[in-house]
Nucleic acid binder design. Structure first.
Lengths: 106, 106
DNA sequence: GTCATTTGGTCAATTTGTGTCCAAAAGTAG
DNA sequence: CTACTTTTGGACACAAATTGACCAAATGAC
């Protein structure tokens, strides 16, 4: 377990990484050949990074790729639940279904 | 708690409801003024029902709307997790984030 | 065989999301 | 205040995904 502030979004984490390294949006964006404005939006969770970009970001900031991917993925679930105003218990139901599917199919 | 086969998808549940009532796709589809083929796809989880349609279906089969909606929503989560090949533990992380967000913001 | 039911492919139309561009806002220092 | 940099945010064209309708093929019942 690395020591990372918990309960943060992918974008916030990205911003923290950038600030820790004392870099500007433009600097990071240029290094990865992407639009400064796009990177800003990703940090604000207004655009979704591609898997490829997450990998590049992990390499750039020298952090574990899987950790970053997992943070991104858990955000996806969070947004889905908040957007559709689901009960939290739906997660339990989903979990049961998945366990069931995993043991009974592939 | 009503007695419903657990670990079923929304579509399978819908099919079961229809069969219990001894109805054909065409009969149900016509009653709700929708394409037979579309209803078939919904039963096979190849098309997503709208919230409005879920309500109509609940009314038609005289089942609890929320129960049907919840089943639909949990499927959504399940598909997302299976499609993106997420670890199951991502659900735990997501749950923590949501609880945190709910107590610290809205 | 006939007839009804179910499945599955195609397609146009809509909806949703992406990345780029540019300008406005906010921040920093002289 | 000015000059400069960084960050934000709107607008847009483009791409990708989803939808519902239509129709034909497959399956099932008899």
């Amino acid at each position: 377990m690395t020591v990372v502030k918990k309960y943060t979004t992918f974008g916030e984490h990205l911003r923290t990484l950038r600030e820790i390294n004392g870099l500007t949006l433009r600097e990071v964006a240029t290094s990865l050949s992407l639009d400064t404005s796009l990177l800003a939006k990703i940090e604000r969770n207004e655009r979704q990074p591609t898997r490829q970009l997450i990998k590049q970001l992990a390499d750039f900031f020298k952090v574990d790729e899987k950790e970053l991917v997992d943070e991104f993925l858990s955000d996806q679930i969070v947004y889905k639940i908040l957007n559709e105003e689901m009960d939290l218990n739906i997660l339990k139901v989903a979990e049961s279904k998945i366990k069931y599917l995993k043991t009974h199919n592939g």
